[in-house]
Design a protein around this nucleic acid. Structure first.
Length: 405
DNA sequence: CATACGTGGGC
DNA sequence: TGCCCAAGTAT
């Protein structure tokens, strides 16, 4: 027997559990969804927190809970309104799935929230992680909630033979860690345990850097004892970035901005010598109104702007359309969607505020960024609207480079 | 199993 | 500045 030590093991697990829970009780951040045991609030937070930092989520969660305080309120809302509140948070399918799931709970289950992890996972948008998180935190069910943080922490704690571990394929590695995660959940405080693993990963046991001297469980950690903390998990092989150029048109009128409906096609135009990487926007930002955009063109170079193409595409009345001299480049910024690294150039056009617009392009609830769903072709939304892929804020445009407006 | 899906912040 | 990362899920 050459190597009697298993690839994975725990060093003094009962003490490890006590130390980690004690540390978590001391340092845990005061987050609004931790103030109550409201299953619905926990659910919303877990969906928002997917791939999104706590700091970003907090204000979105507060606005969302104020507008949709119960699952009934959410189910009764129009999808457009849900998306408007989600706008700016990203990964919009989360919002559509959350809304669809709320309707299942209210209309098929008589408003009764799921009472087990298995039931939670049957809802759209709820996978292995979220179901475990909600069930362990909200229902005190003894189930794991293993996210990227927890996987990293568990791997560092438990992998005793890193070379052997590295020899496994990624799926085997993940299964080993996930099994461990399921096995280690204590029966008496599963939610705190799961959150403690994640909190440790977020605050001390980072992917790039670990603060081992401050770690409450370093004495139970194989990686600390073996000095290989930053070698697990191994760095991912990045997919090659593809440079993209996109043009946007920002049309302002009084205190409003022009938006086009979900799935609007790009502004037609010919860009000789430039390869079009994406002209079908049907699945891009589904359900969300946005700024009119050109197709995605390969490379970062700016092609000639075609202001006449914009006018005819938008089909605003000619008398409202100023001369091409009114166009100006407002600025540019960078934006990434999956492997695409986009340079987004914004052309601005300010319409004459003395002119009137047809009411169907303007009306909306005052002070909200609600956008009616049945508008024809375009809509003048309040400045508080926050369309995706934009640097629009309540205070105007914010560019990293150039001077904004 | 690989890919698509957003955005903001850290280093 | 440019890259990497963040409380994943659906297809």
């Amino acid at each position: 027997m050459i190597d009697p030590q298993p690839t994975c093991s725990a060093i003094g697990r009962p003490v490890l559990t006590a130390n980690l829970l004690s540390w978590y009780a001391d340092i845990k951040r005061d987050l609004p969804w931790r103030d109550s045991c409201d299953l619905y609030g926990i659910w919303v937070s877990e969906i928002m927190l997917q791939q999104t930092t706590v700091q970003t989520v907090v204000p979105f969660w507060q606005r969302f809970m104020e507008r949709f305080p119960t699952v009934q309120a959410l189910a009764a809302a129009a999808e457009t309104d849900v998306l408007a509140l989600w706008s700016g948070l990203g990964y919009y399918s989360r919002a559509r799935n959350l809304h669809a799931a709320a309707r299942v709970v209210v209309h098929q289950w008589e408003g009764e929230m799921p009472s087990s992890r298995e039931q939670w996972q049957s809802l759209p948008g709820i996978g292995p992680y979220a179901s475990g998180a909600i069930a362990s935190i909200g229902l005190l069910e003894r189930v794991p909630a293993v996210d990227a943080n927890a996987r990293r922490v568990l791997a560092r704690l438990a992998v005793a033979q890193p070379a052997e571990f590295a020899g496994l394929n990624p799926a085997q590695q993940q299964k080993m860690i996930d099994d461990l995660g399921a096995d280690w959940v204590p029966a008496d405080s599963p939610g705190d345990w799961n959150q403690a693993l994640m909190e440790l990963g977020a605050l001390l046991c980072g992917a790039r850097r670990a603060h081992c001297p401050e770690c409450p469980v370093r004495n139970h950690c194989h990686a600390w004892q073996g000095q290989w903390v930053e070698q697990v998990p191994p760095p991912k092989t990045p997919t090659a970035a593809v440079p993209v150029w996109v043009g946007q048109l920002l049309v302002t009128w009084r205190d409003r901005i022009l938006l086009v409906p979900p799935a609007s096609p790009p502004v037609p135009g010919s860009f000789p010598g430039r390869k079009t990487l994406r002209a079908d926007f049907g699945k891009l930002h589904p359900g969300l109104w946005g700024l009119p955009m050109t197709p995605w063109l390969a490379g970062h170079q700016t092609p000639p702007w075609q202001s006449e193409a914009w006018r005819s595409w938008l089909d605003l009345p000619e008398k409202l359309w100023p001369s091409s001299a009114a166009f100006r480049v407002a600025g540019h910024f960078r934006h990434g969607i999956t492997k695409y690294r986009m340079r987004v150039e914004v052309l601005q056009l300010d319409l004459d505020p003395r002119q009137e617009m047809p009411a169907r392009w303007v009306e909306s609830e005052t002070g909200s960024n609600r956008i009616p769903k049945a508008k024809q072709g375009l809509f003048f939304a309040p400045r508080s609207a926050r369309p995706p892929v934009s640097k629009l804020t309540d205070k105007g445009l914010h560019f990293q480079e150039d001077t904004g407006v």
